[in-house]
Amino acid sequence: MILFFQTLISGLSLGSIYALIALGYTMVYGIAKMLNFAHGDVIMIGAYSVIVAVMQMNMPPILAIFVSIAFCALLGVIIEFLAYKPLRKAPSLAVLITAIGVSYFLQNIAQLIFGTQQKFFPKIISLPSVTLGTIEISGITLATLAVTAIIMIVLTLFINKTKVGKAMRAVSEDKEAAELMGISTNRTISVTFAIGSALAAVASIFYGATYTYIKPTTGSMPGIKAFTAAVFGGIGSIPGAMLGGILLGIIEQFSKAYVSTTMSDAIVFAVLVIVLVVKPTGLLGKKISEKV
């Protein structure tokens, strides 16, 4: 029973990280109709920027966190502007290949600056652990869960209630019609990249705090897992990314605890395949038939 609850909590925590990253994938897909495969590497850049801010610039941790979030948001906007915007009318394959190129570019830049050796991620969050009966939950796990929950609530309100959020939904449904309403699609896409990359930066802080070491390829595995989570939940759907991320984390941890550590990834992807066979649009993905 203890193992069950500990696995559940570590699954929720890992799932929260996946969900934060998956939100970036799914929002960008929803608005710009592209898969930004460089998104995972923004996590890596976010983690390195915390390292630089804390270790080399001696910033207080809380400031370093906000600097990292702002830096990633800006990076996301710049990547979009330089790499993807010129391809707005290009075939989607060209955009996809460009995204993979951007991914390698970011990894190589990181190698050039920080070397290929892994770097220690500073202990910027030190929270006391909480004991519930016989289960001990680490402070960082609690922080991950709490912050992710808050972000999800705020993001949902933002998308559903604010003018910018509604404009994002309008653009995601019909770009041309949105432009006729006076909504600039270019600006909306920039905002989406900024939000997605900022969420990746938040994920990077929890990832770094949980796994403590960072190297230039750190972003690719959580990036792929989060992409899987986004597809699992229904790509383009924000609640889908949240659900998909959390479920993926839980499945992964339970596979590790109860089945086999080496097989866990295989199980995760097998579940994805089964879900897509049964429901090709993902768990919460929807297809609306249009009236003509």
Binding site: K163, K166, D174, K286, I288
Partner: peptide, 18 residues
């Protein structure tokens, strides 16, 4: 070309975006 996944009121709000 209305926004099919948004409510009627939200569609109208989008019309007044500017």
């Amino acid at each position: 070309r209305i926004f099919l996944q948004m409510t009627v009121a939200e569609n109208l709000e989008m019309g007044a975006y500017t």
